[in-house]
């Protein structure tokens, strides 16, 4: 079995499982409602902000919130990825099969990412609505979505790792949320020190610092590298966790 074929087989099954569960539709509904309400409010408020353009008054704060809400939603999506399989005993079915650990991890990772893309798909309407008002900075829109996708991939990697170390879904959700919140709050710790090295380190490690660049329309190599390393590290730890059956 080829590497991509193995991923594809598991991906298909996982995506089907997600969309057969009411959880995805509930979370999508909730997310769309919150973000739709925020968009409407930013739109109304933008009339009073005569000095700011639509990007500054609507898109940038909106994407900040879209990203922030996934801090809560991503753990709910990933909590069952491995924890449920462990509890049902089906993880051993996968581990004993012809699939490699990496095929299992990527199959599940991409399937969960597909679900998150489905969840944010309703927000694709917002730039179109702005387009009717003459908004045309599509580069910024693409950059914002790209940043959001990178953030989502990072959150999902953390969630998958935590799900792989426990068979309790509630613990998995709470622990992943705590880790993600820790990376989010790291940026505030910057003000707590006068040491520039520590400050720079904390800043570089925090997720919002790198997302901010994308939201301002700047796609920088080091931001992309950070997200790749962040996701890669947690996926690698997930593999190590699966491998622990041999320890």
């Amino acid at each position: 079995m080829g590497f991509s074929r193995g991923i594809w087989i598991l991906y298909k099954k996982e995506v089907k499982d997600y969309f057969l569960s009411p959880l995805v539709y509930i979370l999508t509904g909730l997310y769309s409602l919150i973000i739709g309400w925020l968009f409407f409010n930013y739109l109304v408020a933008s009339k009073d902000l005569t000095t700011a353009n639509l990007s500054q008054s609507i898109l940038i704060p909106l994407f900040g919130n879209m990203n922030f809400i996934f801090l809560f939603l991503a753990p709910l999506l990933t909590m069952k990825v491995f924890a449920e399989e462990k509890k049902l005993g089906t993880l051993n079915l996968l581990l004993r099969s012809g699939l490699t650990d990496w095929q299992i991890i990527f199959g599940k990772y991409f399937a969960t990412f597909t679900v998150t893309v489905f969840m944010i798909s309703m927000t694709f309407l917002f730039p179109i609505i702005l387009g009717f008002s003459g908004y045309h900075d599509w580069g910024l829109v693409i950059s914002c979505y790209l940043g959001l996708f990178f953030c989502l991939l990072s959150y999902l990697a953390v969630g998958m790792f935590v799900s792989s170390i426990t068979s309790n879904q509630i613990i998995a959700a709470i622990l992943s949320f705590s880790i993600l919140l820790g990376f989010m709050l790291m940026v505030f710790s910057v003000n707590a020190t006068h040491l520039s090295l520590v400050r720079d380190l904390f800043q570089y490690l925090s997720v919002p610092f790198h997302f901010e660049g994308f939201v301002r329309g700047a796609i920088k190599n080091f931001n992309i590298l950070y997200f790749f390393c962040f996701s890669g590290m947690f996926l690698y730890m997930t593999r190590k966790s699966l491998e622990s059956r041999y320890w």
């Binding site: 499982d17 057969l20 049902l88 005993g89 051993n92 004993r96």
Partner: peptide, 18 residues
């Protein structure tokens, strides 16, 4: 560590109920 070509039914069958 390579996969063994063995069919295995554990005490609780590994089933995806959905």
């Amino acid at each position: 560590r390579e996969k063994s070509p063995i069919g295995f039914l554990p005490e609780t069958p590994p089933l995806y109920e959905q």
